[in-house]
Design a protein around this nucleic acid. Structure first.
Length: 423
RNA sequence: GGAGAGAUGGCAGAGCGGUCGAAUGCGGCGGUCUUGAAAACCGUUGAAGUGAAAGCUUCCGGGGGUUCGAAUCCCUCUCUCUCCGCCA
């Protein structure tokens, strides 16, 4: 959620920045400012009258204790008059605050100055590529064939148990998932992230805090009986750990990591994009989240990018890093880097991580603040990224490392998996 | 699921319907003392909105009500604890 103060200060700049994101309803900026002015005026009216009521009430108390009943009754009548005039102001104020809030949550975060112009993924800025693309023999096959060959995921039975997009990992496939999760968590905790294992269902307030509600309601699985949502990413419960908290400056930075399954309805997906592991409804992911001093958030973003890059390098996967253009960024993000790995048999790039700085957008909604030495409280900046999403990593590992003998695993996984090769 | 108790400031813990935004203790911060530290003593110490400031308003789990006035009374929801039942 954008801060009203920022919008008031320079509405022109806000509109300009929203245009970079191709946000159409620019008039909402003026609506917010108008509503906020109205809110202020009503609040002032309310407070002035309320102040009269309060002080009169105090006087009534004093009169009563002195036994001056008549004078007290007179005051009471006066107060009744004020209270009557208070009523419409109060309801008007409540309505104004409500529509201000509703308007505010419809506005996306402002992109940072580094965000490139553009509308589609084709306009994303290539930051760098790394790793070496393998030269596969002509008889190489995509991962869904390898999955069958080694019998490591049973999609059909997953469909039988739940529905399409709910893979059933089996045997070495299940073990490789466990190995990857274990390795990713170890990698993150070694870098100073504290490990969490959060609830997989969240309530409405939590889903609202990270911005899944009210906008992306249709993308989450909902449990109507209890008003819970299955999490689409660990970001949701983990960032909300600090909702409504005032931290000390010395608490920052807060670094958290969590493994969770992620549940996404992916309504509207179809075709070859959903083949194999490319897009599924339930998948495993290890997430990193940081809450930091605003002055440092962009340096932290860079360090998170390097962190994820090292992880990909250690897996020996060819990757590229993209800085997302205004049109391809998420609602809440100010700057996002996407990581894609090269899936050699499909011959396409697969997104495996998205690292973003949300600046104060999420923290403003969640009221995550810290106290400066001089006693002022201000909003933290929040950042998160995947390190990493498992299915597409698995797809690339299978495709890129296939051989006559089996899937040759990167060295770092040998210990975790208990073997150098998956056969 | 049944019965009971409770939810107050960073923590602990008081609080008669009327100067209660809230005693007290601990912790934090500042100071006195000290070569330095500790101890002791003194002072200070919640958040939000608005304002140049003084101030004013709101907040004692959430929501609603009674009253001139609610942390205090009533209703309701949520959560926590104790006991019972069920159970991985």
């Amino acid at each position: 959620m954008l801060q009203v103060a920022v919008m008031r200060q320079d509405p022109g700049k806000v509109r300009e920045k929203l245009a970079v994101k191709h946000f159409a309803d620019l008039q909402l900026v003026d609506e917010v400012i108008t509503l906020d002015e109205k809110r202020k005026k009503l609040q002032l009216d309310f407070e002035n009258t309320q102040s009269l009521v309060n002080s009169a009430s105090r006087e009534i108390g004093q009169l009563m204790s002195k036994g001056q009943k008549d004078a007290a009754e007179q005051k009471k009548a006066q107060v009744a008059g004020w209270k009557a005039s208070l009523q419409p102001i109060q309801s008007d104020l409540a309505d104004t605050e409500k529509s201000l809030q509703e308007t505010l949550v419809r506005l996306p975060n402002l992109p940072s100055d580094l965000v490139p112009e553009g509308r589609t993924p084709a306009d994303n800025f290539l930051v760098r590529e790394g790793g070496v693309k393998p030269n596969l023999p002509p008889d190489s096959v995509p991962h869904w064939d390898l999955i069958k060959k080694y019998d490591i995921i049973d999609f059909e039975t997953g469909s039988k148990l739940t529905g399409s997009g709910f893979p059933l990992y089996k045997g070495k496939g299940a073990k490789l998932q466990r190995a990857l999760i274990q390795y990713f968590l170890d990698f993150n905790t070694a870098a100073g992230y504290t490990e969490y294992l959060p609830p997989l269902m969240v309530n409405e307030a939590t889903a609202y805090g990270t911005g899944q509600l009210p906008d992306k309601e249709g993308q989450m699985y909902h449990m109507p009986a209890d008003h819970f949502y299955l999490i689409p990413t660990a970001e949701v419960p983990v960032t909300n750990i600090y909702r409504d908290t005032i931290l000390k400056r010395s608490d920052l930075p807060i670094r958290m990591t969590a493994y969770t399954p992620c549940f996404r309805r992916e309504a509207g997906s179809f075709g070859k994009d959903v083949r194999g592991l490319n897009r599924v409804h339930q998948f495993d992911k290890v997430e990193i989240v940081q809450l930091v001093d605003p002055a440092e958030s962009y340096a932290v973003l860079d360090s998170m990018v390097v962190h994820v890059e090292r992880l990909l390098l250690s897996l020996g996967l060819p990757y590229r890093i993209l800085r997302l253009c205004g049109g391809d960024m998420s609602f809440a993000s100010a700057l996002t880097y996407d990581f894609e790995v090269w899936s050699a048999a499909q011959e396409k790039w697969l997104e495996v991580s998205s690292v973003s700085n949300f600046e104060a957008f999420q923290s403003n909604r969640m009221k995550i603040r810290f106290k400066e030495e001089d006693g002022k409280t201000q909003l933290v900046h929040s950042l998160n990224g995947s390190s990493l999403a498992l299915p597409r990593i698995l797809a690339a590992l299978l495709e890129n490392n296939q051989s006559d003998k089996g899937i040759n695993l990167p060295e770092i996984l040998h210990g975790y998996f208990g073997s150098t090769i998956l056969i």
